[in-house]
Design a protein around this nucleic acid. Structure first.
Length: 317
DNA sequence: CACTTGACCTGTCCGC
DNA sequence: TGCGGACAGGTCAAGT
């Protein structure tokens, strides 16, 4: 998925676009798993509710509503949240406006009739065509005619509506580790949290969300390269000084990625449907066969901890 | 409890 | 050009 920097990029985009908008309708398309409680709760607590705030915890997005409920969203591997602002607002009370206007085909017609993607830039910046498309799982329509689309090719991601007060009680929220970019999160705490995973390798522990929140395959490989640590090392053999290096590299890499709008391989886009550019700056991820930018040795890709793992065997010890 | 593996899905790419 | 298998940025539920 989108890892922490990608989810944070989406959050920042949505935080500029959503607060104050009022939900007119919400629809799950052909995939109950993507929006499991799209039922009575939606009519009661989503339709008519105003968006207050867009937050993030780990890789989870939280859209708070004034109905004491929140939309909790996980993009997993291929999820996208794309906001589309209509080019026009239909007159209130008109026959067209009183239609449910929920059918995907109807929305596609509306789009062709004059809707305009908000903030669309150069065509190459966009991975998303006209919406909805075949990967669209949820459509939220606002009273001003704008739409929020949840697209997810692989259907691993989800949107859940729940009382805001219950969000911290989700199992994931109770178990997930600290935010690595928080100012009060120290290198000492970072090292300490790894210690209980002493018998596994550092890459697997790094990907464990209960150790530190938000690290995924890209930024694990990138920061292990930065800290010159071989991803196959056992946690128990990693020194305190090496953990401190890894802590700093993780924060540098994630801050750079946020600045660049995240990494786009195939599916990830920001709230306006545009790609991120961190992959242009990647040192090892998806760069197997090319020279290590530090020592010139060939970057390897192996299967490790169940994931594709990229590293330089020469300078990561 | 700590650790590993497979499952969840669809799409794409690569070798035969 | 077709077909099978591996693989894709993330988590869970099982298994040992």
């Amino acid at each position: 998925m989108p890892e922490l920097p990608e989810v944070e990029t989406v959050r920042r985009g949505l935080a500029e676009l959503l607060p104050g908008r009022i939900v007119k309708s919400a629809q799950a398309i052909d995939s109950p798993k993507s929006f499991p409680n799209a039922n009575e709760d939606v009519r009661q607590f989503l339709v008519g509710a105003k968006i207050l705030e867009v937050k993030r915890r780990a890789k989870v997005l939280l859209i708070e509503l004034d109905s004491k409920h929140s939309l909790v969203i996980h993009l997993k591997m291929t999820g996208q949240l794309v906001f589309v602002k209509e080019g026009h607002t239909p007159p209130l009370g008109s026959e067209v406006n009183s239609e449910p206007a929920l059918h995907p085909l109807k929305l596609a017609q509306d789009a062709r009739a004059g809707a305009q993607r908000f903030g669309a830039g150069h065509p190459n910046d966009s991975l998303v065509g006209e919406l909805p498309d075949k990967s669209t799982r949820v459509i939220i329509e606002f009273t001003d005619g704008s739409h929020l689309y949840f697209n997810d090719q692989r259907k691993f991601g989800w949107v859940k509506l729940m009382p805001t007060l219950e969000v911290p009680n989700i199992d994931f929220m109770k178990k997930v580790g600290p935010e690595p970019l928080e100012a009060d999160f120290t290198a000492e705490q970072f090292a300490e949290r790894f210690r209980r995973r002493a018998k596994t390798n550092i890459k697997a522990a790094f990907l464990d969300q209960t150790v530190v929140a938000g690290v995924g395959n890209i930024y694990a490989d990138e920061s292990l390269w930065g800290a010159k640590i071989d991803p196959r090392r056992l946690v128990g053999n990693v020194t305190e000084a090496e953990f401190h290096n890894l802590y700093h590299e993780l924060r540098i890499v994630m801050n750079l990625a946020i600045e660049k709008g995240g990494s786009t391989d195939k599916n990830y886009v920001n709230a306006e449907g545009k790609k991120g550019s961190y992959m242009d700056f990647a040192r090892v991820f998806r760069r197997e066969g090319r020279p290590c930018p530090r020592c010139g040795a060939t970057i390897l890709k192996i299967r490790h901890a169940g994931r594709g793992t990229h590293f330089c065997e020469n300078c990561q010890k």
